[in-house]
Structure formats: C-alpha cells, structure tokens
C-alpha cells in the first residue's frame, strides 16, 4: 500500500498505477487475475488495467456481450459475487462459457464508488469456487477506493493542467491585445473600440491570430524609434 500511496502525491502515469493496484489485489485477495473496468467517453466499459491478457480477454468479451457480473456491478453499484461461475450459465451464457474456457471458477465484482456515483468496477477472478471472505471483502473495498481516488486525482490534475494552459494563453493574449489597443489609439488618435476593430480587421484579412497582430503592433511601435 505504501508504494500506492506514494504515487498519489506526485505526477504519475495512471495506467501504471492501476496496473500495480490490480497486481496487489490479486496477491492480497488470492485471486488468479484482477482487472479494472472504466467507461470510455461513450459510456462503454473498457479494461484499463488487468493482471494478464487472460482477464483482459474475458473482460473484453463480456463487455462486448453486454452481460456478466462486471457490468452488473458497474450498473447496479452493488457488489456482485459469483461463488460458482458454472452455476450462472442460464443467466450469463456467454460469460460463463468464456470464463470456463479460461479456467475461472468464481469471481467477485466490486463497484468503484464516489459519493453514490459508480465510476467503474474492480473484478477478481479465482480458479476455485467459493464466497468472498468478509475480511477479503473489506480489503477489496479499500483497494477499490484507492483505485477510485487515483483515477479522480488524475482526472482533476489533467483538467487543471488544461485550465492552466488556457490561462497562460488567454491572459498573456489579453495583456498584449490591450497594450496594442493603447499603442494604436494613441498613435492613430482613435478610441479603444476603434483600435480593437482595426486590429480585428487586420487579423481577418491576413488570417493571423489577434494576439499575433497585437504583438506586431507593439514591436513596430518600438522599432520606429532610432
């Protein structure tokens, strides 16, 4: 858990974090494989991290089939525990068939939740039948929470970085545009509105950005002097 906690406070690669997390999950919870599903921008669940290609395969299959415990946990927001996959053939025929081919006998799907919203699911696959021990259920819940926090932090940081880039551009452009309005208004003896309109007209006819036109006006004013 320490290496997981460490990754939360510095810049990190979210996929790498989640891969570490599913590997820990499999170790701690005695699962053959573990995987995390998150919705893509279109709302379709996709595998973001898994311990092996084997669980990746089944997850992808069940998502394509739109059935199975992983989808149920995500959609219901409730823990879905399958003590015997073989016994679910009637309910989820495609899932049960694919799982049996891969030698999974039981599985448990833990919804990843934040304040009542489900953002994904953590899925444990085992090669033995049986229930999820209550202690394991608590540990699984805690690991699902770590995954949730990691994902939210990464999203928040990414959005904040986009906002920061927008700030750099918008504020620097604004300052240059206002300075250029001042230059034009004084040198051409026109008001600020007219100065802005002339700059905008120049930008449109030359296809240049307004801030580039503004930069040019300022540097030309400076270069006029000897």
């Amino acid at each position: 858990m320490v290496d997981l906690a460490d990754t939360l406070v510095v810049d990190y690669d979210i996929v790498d974090v989640l891969h570490t997390l599913v590997e820990r999950c499999a170790d701690i919870l005695d699962a053959t494989d573990a995987g995390i599903l998150l919705p893509d921008p279109y709302g379709d669940l996709e595998v973001i991290a898994s311990t092996s290609e084997r669980s990746q395969l089944i997850s992808l299959l069940q998502v394509r089939a739109d059935e199975g415990p992983c989808v149920d946990a995500y959609e219901s927001g409730e823990l879905v525990t399958v003590e015997s996959i073989a016994a679910t053939f009637a309910r989820w025929p495609k899932f049960a068939t694919d799982a049996a081919e891969l030698d999974y006998l039981s599985m448990h799907a833990i919804p990843m939740k934040l304040r009542g919203q489900t953002i994904g699911s953590l899925n444990l696959f085992r090669d033995a039948t049986g229930p999820l021990h209550p202690d394991d259920a608590i540990a699984a819940r805690a690991l699902a929470d770590v995954a949730t926090i990691s994902i939210l932090q990464e999203r928040t940081l990414r959005q904040a970085q986009i906002a920061q880039e927008q700030l750099q551009h918008a504020l620097n452009s604004r300052v240059v545009i206002e300075q250029a309005k001042g230059v034009l208004s004084h040198s051409e003896n026109i008001d600020m509105t007219e100065a802005f309109n002339r700059m905008r007209a120049r930008a449109r006819t030359t296809g240049a950005r307004l801030s580039d036109v503004a930069e040019k006006i300022i540097s030309q004013a400076q270069n006029r002097q000897p």
């Binding site: 300052v175 206002e178 300075q179 001042g182 230059v183 034009l184 208004s185 004084h186 400076q222």
Partner: peptide
C-alpha cells in the same frame, strides 16, 4: 495595459 500601450508611444519606449 491600455495605458501602458499609450505611454509606450508617448515616451517612445
């Protein structure tokens, strides 16, 4: 910033 632009012209700076 507008005033800064105007002063730049006024002072040639």
């Amino acid at each position: 910033h507008q005033a800064t632009g105007m002063i730049a012209v006024q002072l040639d700076t």
